[in-house]
């Protein structure tokens, strides 16, 4: 995500600074490469947030046994796959 941020910050800086920049970014985003980077970045961020939320719950002392830890991890992965598909459909 750290490297994806290069694209995100660049795209935001360009698009918010001038109408031409906005048009250029919009054009890139409608292209295949733009969509791949966008979906990839959003998917990685989704996984990171879901995992982070799981960690916040674990900080409060839950899901610390083998079984509960495993199950919550599988739920995160399942949710991540579903959400990535949803984002993919929305963006394409």
């Amino acid at each position: 995500m750290f490297f994806a941020l290069l694209f995100v910050i660049w795209a935001w800086a360009e698009s918010v600074s001038s109408p031409d920049g906005f048009a250029f970014v919009q054009e890139q985003m409608s292209g295949v490469i733009g969509k791949i980077i966008a979906i990839g970045t959003i998917s990685a961020l989704t996984y990171h947030i879901l995992g982070g939320l799981r960690h916040l719950v674990m900080d409060m002392g839950h899901w610390e046994e083998l079984e509960s830890g495993n199950n919550s991890a599988k739920i995160v992965i399942g949710l991540w796959i579903v959400l990535t598909i949803v984002v993919g459909v929305l963006l394409c």
């Binding site: 750290f2 941020l5 290069l6 910050i9 935001w12 800086a13 918010v16 600074s17």
Partner: peptide, 20 residues
């Protein structure tokens, strides 16, 4: 290098926001 890049994200953001 990682920290330098992380800082430049903030710097870019700050100067762009400044100009809006």
């Amino acid at each position: 290098f990682i920290n330098l890049v992380a800082f430049s994200y903030v710097a870019v953001g700050l100067f762009v926001l400044w100009g809006l």
